[in-house]
């Protein structure tokens, strides 16, 4: 055995500088890459086959979660009841927005569903979305390739669109604003781009739907790009004071500005002891 190994290494060391050694190695390498690729692709196809069979199981899993966590309000077949709307035809985008931002399931039946820690994890959310999407066609969840806002958006145009379409409820700086009877437009700071997009497509709660005829796909991405710019923009000129405008500015002028000055005036007029 040891003799055979010795002969093998002797063979390599003798012919490694042979003029055919290089092309032979290249050929071997190509062969390895080709075979490896083919095998791998076959394996991937196998995975996809698994996934499509997984889709059915995802839907059934979603149906199960739905029956457990959502049906008490939305009905066993998502047909809606009382305050809870029918979910037939709302699409995967709507489910993803509502569940992944923690709005659904609702914490309480107050004026509107508040953003909170999501109750379901990513897979459960996807299962719910798949189940609801299977009931009737509706806005589908957006893929990452479609949501390439860094590349496809335009910040300046997005700002202009935001001021025209969004600022009347969400505030000029995207800080959110009050609506009637305790409802409100939440702040758009710190929201996942995917969820901003889904909100525009599905119009959750008091928000209108911004269909592609109102804001095209690229325009939606521009809005997202502007929001992300404002979110990450350093506060120019000092502390931002909550970015809510003159109310906090007035409070600071009174408390900090005039407060310090009156304090100094008191000190200046204290009698020396």
């Amino acid at each position: 055995m040891g003799k055979a190994v010795n002969r093998f290494f002797g063979f390599i060391s003798r012919y490694r500088r042979h003029r055919f050694a290089g092309p032979l190695m290249l050929l071997g390498g190509l062969l390895f890459a080709g075979v490896g690729y083919t095998v791998a692709q076959a394996a991937t196809e196998e995975v996809q086959v698994v996934l499509s069979s997984d889709k059915a199981s995802l839907i059934s899993e979603g149906k199960e979660i739905f029956a457990r966590g959502c049906s008490s309000c939305h009905g066993l077949n998502a047909e809606g009841a009382g305050a809870a709307p029918s979910l037939i035809g709302v699409g995967a985008a709507s489910v993803d927005f509502q569940v992944a931002t923690g709005r659904m399931p609702m914490a309480d039946m107050s004026q509107q569903a508040a953003r909170k820690e999501p109750v379901y994890d990513e897979r459960e959310t996807a299962a719910l979305a798949a189940y609801v999407a299977s009931l009737a066609p509706g806005p589908a969840a957006i893929t990452n390739e479609e949501l390439f806002w860094e590349r496809d958006g335009n910040t300046a145009e997005g700002g202009e669109l935001f001021r025209t379409n969004c600022a009347m409820c969400h505030n000029l700086a995207g800080q959110g604003g009050a609506l009637t009877q305790g409802k409100y437009a939440p702040t758009v700071m710190g929201v996942e781009p995917r969820h901003i997009y889904e909100a525009m497509v599905t119009g959750p709660q008091a928000m209108p739907v911004f269909a592609n005829s109102v804001l095209t796909h690229e325009e939606k991405l521009s809005v997202i790009k502007w929001i992300k710019f404002v979110e990450t923009e350093p506060s120019l000129g000092g502390a931002a004071l909550g970015r809510v405008g003159p109310v906090t500015e007035g409070a600071v002028a009174f408390i900090l500005g005039l407060g310090i000055l009156i304090g100094i005036a008191v000190w200046l007029t204290t009698k020396a002891r």
Binding site: R163, A167, G177, V230, G237
Partner: peptide, 20 residues
């Protein structure tokens, strides 16, 4: 302390308005 950050508010346009 930042005061009146006009660059965030954008230019005046009678067709636009901000909450708050």
């Amino acid at each position: 302390a930042q005061i009146n950050p006009i660059w965030i508010y954008g230019p005046y346009n009678p067709g636009q308005i901000g909450a708050g």
